[in-house]
Design a binder for these strands. Structure first.
Length: 450
RNA sequence: GUGGCUAUAGCUCAGUCGGUAGAGCGCCUGGUUGUGGUCCAGGAGGUCGCCGGUUCAAGCCCGGUUAGCCACCCCA
């Protein structure tokens, strides 16, 4: 078979990259569980009509079909698509299991998702998301909108030790934006948000033009939108700035006041519990139209161009079965986006790509069993050990270990010896008692350069 | 979905005016008694993405196609 070419947008890591990814996944899972989130996994597919409820995303959904599907089979059976996020499957799961779940229900979910996008750096067609959501039955207290981003701050903060840069969680509140725009007399809130969202890419002048041309705003309304978008800060003073701005345009509404109250609570709590991490930023819009309260977007400091690595928000109707509605709030980390940057920018590295801590050399094939016995004795005590593939010259066997990052080579004999191939130190050793230093026992993930 | 760029050794790339293919790194072997990395010597490895056209002659020019990268869109 000819050598296959890589498929763009379907990332695969080499073993040492996988070590990094798994460390990240483990760290996230641990933080989520420390905060009481229960883990679930949902199937990879959902009925197509469920997936399409979000509207615009339809083009991105991969549909599933049997290769030999009969003509007309698709019509009689329910069409299936691969899920493109974890929120839609979760909503379906909540409805399906509502009678067996206890609300408010806190869950985390770490799975692959698929999107038919044009790939780019940090943008994939198959990638891993790590979601946390809290969903209530009928109602959901506001304080969860404060707590969830702080859980994510803690989860991402736990990765600082391996070299992950600082994060900044930018927050806004849909009620603030909507209340402000409506107060100005702009009723196409979605449209305005979409234009304002381009601020970082095309600049304020171009956004102002778009607001006038596309949204039918007056130049003064456009100016007000830009002034709102320019407000940001880490304390409650942003609330006063917004209120003053709205007053100056006579655009104060009840909705705006409600949103400002919520934003203030979030910023104040965050300032106490995770100082400097959460920043109120009134230009954060989020394209998704189902958010109804707080919205969140997270950037890696120094890697802002990568885009958001963790986003989410509050939605009043995560799910609804007609009789009951289930409001929720959640965030999702783009694990693949994060890990791909950690690896490509050389921020984080694994000490080795194989688990093996000790390579047991083979003197000759007649005594391979003795080498196997050494490896077995090491493994029995929890030391990952491998046996050399051939009884090649010891130089080659050492090289075999070196190329894989295996730190120790064991030489069986009258008196067994073990060599630390980094230092060259070689000492007598006994397979029933010898242990490598704790730091060498398993591969570790460390900041690059250490 | 729209637009731009690219495609040569395992990797990163060079290849002039169109004249049958190069470097560095990596890999293999050797430098005597079974201990790697440095150094030295030697070696293997290419359908120049694919299909067609122009030409005496194409890696190079032209058309198509596929794939990759980047930007837009959107988003993790």
């Amino acid at each position: 078979m000819a050598r296959p070419t890589p498929l763009s947008g379907f990332p695969e890591w080499l073993p040492d990259g996988r070590v990094v990814e798994q460390h990240v996944l483990e760290a996230l899972r641990r933080t989520f569980e420390l905060h009481g989130f229960a883990g679930i996994e949902t199937r990879a597919v959902e009925p197509l009509d469920q997936l399409l409820r979000k509207g615009e995303t339809s083009k991105e959904v991969y549909v599933l079909r049997r290769l030999q599907a009969e003509e007309g089979e698709d019509a009689s059976e329910k069409q299936l698509g691969l899920h493109f996020d974890l929120t839609v499957p979760f909503a379906r799961y909540v409805l399906e299991n509502a009678g067996r779940l206890a609300f408010p229900f806190k869950r985390y979910q770490i799975q692959k998702v698929w999107r038919g996008e044009r790939p780019q750096e940090g943008r994939f067609r198959e990638f891993v998301q790590a979601d946390i959501d809290v969903v209530g039955a009928g109602e959901l207290p506001y304080h969860y909108e404060v707590e969830l981003p702080l859980v994510m701050a803690e989860a991402l903060g736990s990765l600082r030790a391996i070299g992950v840069p600082e994060v900044r969680i930018l927050v806004n509140n849909r009620k603030v934006a909507e209340g402000f725009y409506r107060g100005l007399g702009l009723d196409d809130v979605e449209g305005v948000l979409r234009q304002v969202d381009k601020l970082d890419k095309i600049g304020p002048d171009a956004v102002a033009e778009l607001l006038v041309a596309e949204q039918g705003a007056t130049p003064e309304q456009a100016k007000a939108c830009l002034e709102l978008a320019a407000i940001s800060g880490t304390d409650a003073s942003v609330v006063e700035q917004v209120r003053a701005l709205a007053a100056s345009y006579d655009a104060v509404t009840d909705l705006l006041e409600t949103g400002l109250g919520e934003l203030r609570a979030l910023v104040e709590a965050a300032a106490r519990r995770a100082p400097g991490v959460v920043v109120a930023d009134l230009k954060i819009a989020r394209g998704l139209d189902y958010y109804t309260g707080s919205v969140y977007e997270t950037v890696l400091v120094g890697h802002e161009q990568l885009g958001s690595i963790c986003s989410g928000g509050r939605y009043d109707t995560l799910a609804s079965d007609g009789k009951n509605t289930y409001p929720g709030v959640g965030l999702s980390i783009g694990v693949s986006r994060l890990v791909s940057r950690l690896l490509s920018a050389g921020l984080v590295t694994a000490t080795r790509g194989v688990p093996t801590a000790v390579l047991v050399a083979v003197t000759d094939e007649e005594t391979r069993e003795a080498s196997d016995a050494v490896a077995a004795a090491l493994r029995a005590r929890g030391v990952p050990a491998d046996v050399a593939p051939t009884a090649a010259k010891f130089g080659k066997q050492i090289k075999y270990a070196d190329r894989r990052g295996i730190p120790f080579v064991w030489f069986p004999g009258e008196q067994d010896q073990v060599k630390d191939i980094r230092s060259g130190d070689q000492v007598d050793a006994d397979a029933t008692t010898w242990e490598p230093p704790a730091a060498d026992l398993w591969p570790r993930v460390v900041p690059a350069g250490e």
